[in-house]
Amino acid sequence: MGTGITIGQIQKLLGARLLCGETMLGTEVHSACGADLMSDVLAFVKEQSVLLTGLLNLQVVRTAEMMDMKCIVFVRGKVPDEAILTLAEARGIAVMSTDCRMYSACGRLYAAGLVGLE
């Protein structure tokens, strides 16, 4: 695992707008994954704390919940609806939206030490 960074640092690195989970900003995370296919996220049981995705529906939050993830980043400026935010809030998952596209968002976080799992 790489060095940990906080969810607040992720927000800054991506110039993202935090949509819920303000109390999570100081939480440190150590690994991330980027996927639009939820079964690809579910294929790895090891802890991955951050999910970057272009997919926008409630099952993104469910998937993050099953995997004990701490933060969801919607890329390409996508903004989730109220139902998604309500569920994420209830599950203690921070949600943010960045204008970065998937590749750039992953690259910025990787360069900052937030690695993926091999």
Binding site: M38, S39, N57
Partner: peptide, 16 residues
């Protein structure tokens, strides 16, 4: 389009 149905579900179940 909803992020499932790519033929990974049953393999994931067998894996875990």
């Amino acid at each position: 389009d909803l992020g499932f149905g790519a033929g990974m579900g049953l393999p994931n179940m067998r894996r875990y």
